[in-house]
Write a protein that binds this DNA or RNA. Structure first.
Length: 611
RNA sequence: GGACCCGUGGUGUAGCGGCCCAACAUGCCAGCCUGUCACGCUGGAGAUCGCCGGUUCGAAUCCGGUCGGGUCCGCCA
């Protein structure tokens, strides 16, 4: 494919030694200018690369005069002859470094103000607000262009795989109906019906299920989604999901397809990065929490949680005894070689544990040489022999450090899960090249919402129970609209699966309920009256009366996936025009106050904030 | 809703009660330079230290507020 146009014969990354002798025209930005007096060097840049232009006063006086006026980021076109560079002056750092363009004519296409930050220095540190204010300049930087291209390649690979697998890409509307579940909706007031609003989709969930009812069989979409919640490095108010849904599938069918797709896409986008385990490991939610203290485990390192309940029972340490008596857990992780860490590093673990919600952190260090010499927070209370026995029970050897937490079951697991990640990454155990995918499935259908006296969907309110648990979607009272925390529903597991990459939740999905009766029962458990359901979910409930196929699907966060491929922590780095933590677009100045006539048309009035 | 961090020439930082009408690097401007590639050399311009108020004889520096950015908890799947 040629990118030549009426302005250029080649891109700035294209010319090689084999092109020597050819006439060429290049167009691009002045990356750098090196003025030697009678000889001026220009590094001409476009997104494809950099080519050196040399302009000799003696042989091209007009071009030389023009080049003297050039400044950084001016846009120019240069015509001339491609020449091999004189021996010894080749630049091995550039792919085009064997040649240069001997400029005969320099044409200024656009001047440029001095940019507010360095576009030509890859390592320059730039305040993020400044980058966002001048995003078009930030994106001009090679690194950002690379990320945009990588993201495009990611989406292309996704489309290719789905297309080859019989999927139909369908666009769903952006103006839809507000639903009460999940996050806060962005709303758009209606001019036709003052006082009424559309909602922007949090995901196309109901629409894709309706496409299944329509017989689309396999649907996918690169879908923009919106959630009006507080932002984080990995959360933007609008973000992109790969959304897909398949008919006539069970859990394994969806997982198998997604796994094959993820492997194919990974190999296309990041061929140099090994995929840790194929097939992807699968853990039930319960096992994931028990072994890794997380429903999105980072499997690039071990440091698995160990139950120390029997090892500490009767040790005579009050915290352990009271926790166990209250039905809690005492668990630990072994930090290999951690016995040698400094007092201040230990304190960092303690601070981290408290930040994660722990009441305290107990540690046991086994000295590296000799045997039986331990240091520990519980040494005095428990004695050397018993302390060492606990450490050994955790699987620690000489030189290791054991971190122990005692708390209610899930609290204990989650705290240690976070400490595990802290320790694993801190010790450099997480191979940054590795792509370590895994599945976590069989989440609890519901968790008890004590505040509202109802069950709440752990993930998606349309998720189906695992077939064996379907009878559990019931209440003790017998009436699903009268739930209580002791209901069998609390034990039901969902056909819900999350896919995790290097400790990030990449996506989640489920097999859906496709029978109206069961969906209504589930909604009732979640506190909806039958009237309320018709109001909020009437469309889909009715659709299910007209023959809905069994179906299931998943949604994957494209931004997170791209960020992981780009090895960045923040999804803003892989979005062209992201917003700040307070939802502002610093470049466009959005959001901005509504014009009075706009409000009037919509039948709205602005109320000044309190205070 | 809450906690913490940051805000000083265009950019990145230093200075953290008087030695500062603010330092360093880079960028910018001018001059010189025919093989540079983060070119080099010489000279120059450029900052009411985010904003408002307070403490003090004296504030970039201490205190309060506010605005903007970030990280985290809540929230969010």
């Amino acid at each position: 494919m040629s990118l030549s146009t009426s302005y250029r014969t080649h891109t700035c990354g294209e010319l090689r030694a084999a092109d020597a002798g050819a006439e060429a025209a290049l167009a691009g930005w002045v990356h750098r200018r090196r003025d030697q007096g009678g000889l001026i060097f220009l590094d001409l840049r476009d997104r494809h690369g950099i080519t050196q232009v040399v302009i000799d006063e003696a042989s091209a006086p007009e071009a030389h005069t023009a080049a003297e006026e050039l400044r950084t980021e001016f846009v120019v076109q240069v015509r001339g002859r491609v020449e091999r560079r004189p021996a010894g002056t080749e630049n091995l750092k550039l792919p085009t470094g064997e040649i240069e363009l001997r400029g005969r004519a320099v044409r200024l296409l656009a001047e440029a103000r001095t940019p507010p930050f360095y576009i030509n220095e890859p390592d320059a540190v730039i305040e993020e607000a400044l980058r966002l204010r001048y995003r078009y300049l930030d994106l001009r930087r090679e690194e950002m262009q690379r990320r945009l291209a990588m993201r495009a390649a990611l989406v292309t690979a996704i489309r290719a795989f789905h297309d080859a697998s019989g999927f139909v890409e369908v666009e769903t509307p952006i103006l839809i109906k507000s639903t009460p579940e999940g996050a806060r909706d962005f709303i758009v007031p209606s001019r036709f019906q003052p006082g009424s609003v559309y909602a922007l989709p949090q995901s196309p969930q109901q629409l894709k299920q309706l496409l299944m009812v329509a017989g689309t069989d396999r649907y996918y979409q690169i879908a923009r989604c919106f959630r009006d919640e507080d932002l984080r490095g990995d959360r933007q108010p609008e973000f992109t999901q790969l959304d897909l849904e398949m008919s006539f599938v069970a859990e394994d069918d969806v997982m198998a397809f997604v796994e094959a797709m993820v492997i194919d896409v990974s190999r296309k986008v990041a061929p140099e990065r090994p995929i840790a385990l194929i097939p992807f490991p699968r853990f039930t939610y319960e096992v994931a929490l028990e072994r890794f203290g997380s429903d999105k485990p980072d499997l690039r390192f071990g440091l698995e949680l160990v139950d120390l309940g029997s090892a500490v029972a009767g040790a005579g340490y009050r915290v352990f005894d009271s926790t166990l008596a209250a039905g809690g857990r005492v668990m630990g992780i072994v930090v290999p070689g951690g016995a040698g860490i400094s007092r201040s590093q230990l304190e960092e673990y303690e601070t981290a544990a408290r930040r994660f919600g722990a009441k305290g952190l107990i540690w046991i260090a086994i000295e590296p040489d000799g045997r039986g010499r331990v240091r520990s927070t519980i040494f005095k209370a428990v004695g050397e022999e018993r302390t060492e026995a606990i450490a050994v029970a955790a699987g620690a050897g000489p030189g290791d450090l054991v971190l122990v937490v005692a708390d209610a079951n899930i609290t204990c697991q989650e705290i240690l899960g976070k400490l595990r990640v802290e320790a694993g990454r801190g010790l450099g155990l997480a191979d940054p090249d590795l792509l370590s995918y895994c599945w976590v499935h069989r989440f609890p259908m519901y968790h008890w919402d004590g505040e509202n006296g109802r069950w709440d969907a752990t993930h998606n309110p349309f998720s189906a129970p695992v077939p064996a648990d379907e009878p559990l979607l019931a209440t003790l009272s017998g009436d699903p609209t009268q739930p209580s925390p002791e209901d069998p529903a609390g034990r039901a597991r969902a056909q819900q699966y999350d896919i995790t990459l290097n400790g990030w939740e990449l996506g989640g999905g489920s097999v859906r309920i496709h029978r109206r009766e069961l969906l209504e029962r589930s909604f009732a458990l979640m506190g909806h009256s039958y009237e309320g359901m018709r109001e909020r979910f009437g469309g889909i409930l009715e659709a299910f009366e007209y023959g809905a196929p069994p179906h299931g699907g998943i949604a994957l966060g494209i931004d997170r996936w791209a960020a992981l491929f780009a090895r960045v922590e923040n999804i803003r780095e892989v979005m062209a025009f992201p917003k700040t933590q307070s939802g502002s677009d610093l470049m466009l100045g959005a959001p901005s106050p509504a014009e009075p006539h706009q409000l009037e048309e919509l039948g709205l009035r602005s109320v000044p904030p309190e205070g």
